[in-house]
């Protein structure tokens, strides 16, 4: 037919891959840089490179944030934000510490129940956002307060106990076993990205109106995103409890904002529809590495937040500048 215009120059494979996954690639590159930086300052301090112990403890300590960052990613991709992640982690953490007993039945049963609770909490957020048509930031700010209150009700004082066997099953402190989880989560994400729901999630985040016009069930997609976010937040709460071997109804509070930071560092757009949970996972590791670097550069720990904040701004601004340059050619 007559429609064939002169074919424009097509992008090379490599260039296209870099360009289309810019946020993810910048996050991975940044991760490499901060890991190298960490190894450098570690060597300068200790006279050797970090070994198995450092790797294991770093990965173990980052796991809760990795899971929280995935939860945040799922919601942010729909052009929302979930400020209640910290509250969901508080509540699930408290539930585990208050109720879980040694014995396979109790551990499995409560784990399943707690994940279901996470899904339920996410569903509440989702219903308010999707059916109530309220702003995600306000809805989740309100539910954050509610979840925090419930957590304190469940576990008024820090304590409770997590069965040793549960900790052993989830957290291996002698080898970087958790890296397997990281890889598994990455694979899970790649699979999800290819599922109908994954495509719908991106479509809704790209343009809600267009998604509807294309026959996508926008409400169901959002509900699913918030529910899955709840499940991952609950998982984060469980891992946090397993790591600490006891519970604390406020231990998750800090994770709300840290999950947002991880998502932003991971190149996920807060305007929805762009990004990857793998980037957010990298973002979680980046934040953790920055803390480690600060520790080994003997900077007064009181200044830690200063450097974290500065780092966040610089990365976001540089990322935008690099993106613009790259696109222009």
């Amino acid at each position: 037919m007559s429609a064939s215009l002169a074919a424009p120059a097509r992008l090379t494979r490599v260039r296209r891959y870099l360009l289309h996954n810019l946020g993810l690639n910048l996050a991975l590159a940044l991760l490499v840089v901060v890991v190298a930086l960490y190894c450098g300052v570690y060597f300068a301090q200790q006279g050797r490179f970090p070994g198995n112990f450092e790797l294991t403890s770093t990965v173990d300590n980052t796991m809760p944030l990795v899971l929280a960052a995935i939860a945040q990613t799922l919601v942010v991709l729909t052009r929302g934000i979930d400020l209640s992640i910290g509250g969901m982690m508080d509540l699930t953490n408290a539930l585990a510490a208050a109720h879980m007993k040694a014995g396979i039945g109790s551990m499995l049963g409560w784990s399943a129940l707690i994940l279901a609770v996470g899904a339920g909490l996410g569903l509440v957020n989702g219903l308010l956002v999707a059916y109530g048509r309220l702003q995600p930031i306000l809805v989740t700010l309100a539910t954050l307060s509610i979840f925090q209150g419930l957590a304190i009700r469940v576990l008024p004082d820090p304590g409770g106990a997590i069965p040793q066997a549960y900790t052993d099953a989830l957290v291996n402190t002698s080898a970087p076993w958790a890296l397997v989880y990281v890889v598994a989560l990455a694979l899970l994400w790649l699979g999800f990205r290819r599922s109908a729901l994954g495509v719908a999630l991106f479509a809704v985040g790209n343009d809600e109106r267009a998604a509807r016009a294309n026959g996508i069930d926008v409400i169901r997609t959002k509900l699913a995103a918030y529910m899955m976010g709840g499940v991952f937040a609950a998982l984060a709460g469980l891992v946090l409890a397993a790591t600490a071997t006891s519970g604390d109804a406020t231990t998750g509070d800090g994770f709300t904002l840290r999950s947002v930071v991880a998502v932003v560092l991971g190149g996920v757009s807060l305007f929805g529809g762009r990004g990857s949970a793998i980037g957010a996972m990298a973002g979680a590791f980046i934040t953790m590495m920055i803390v480690n670097v600060l520790f080994f550069t003997a900077i007064d720990p009181l200044y830690q937040s200063f450097f974290e904040g500065l780092f966040l701004v610089v990365v976001v601004v540089l990322g935008a500048v690099i993106g613009r340059r790259f696109r222009r050619g």
Partner: peptide, 26 residues
């Protein structure tokens, strides 16, 4: 940061909160 560098308000002010926390404590 927000108006000129186009950083989302949530990110910019969150980061500045950290900056001020660190400066104040330090």
């Amino acid at each position: 940061g927000i108006a000129v560098l186009a950083v989302p308000a949530v990110v910019m002010t969150l980061a500045m909160n950290g900056v001020m926390e660190g400066l104040t404590l330090g």
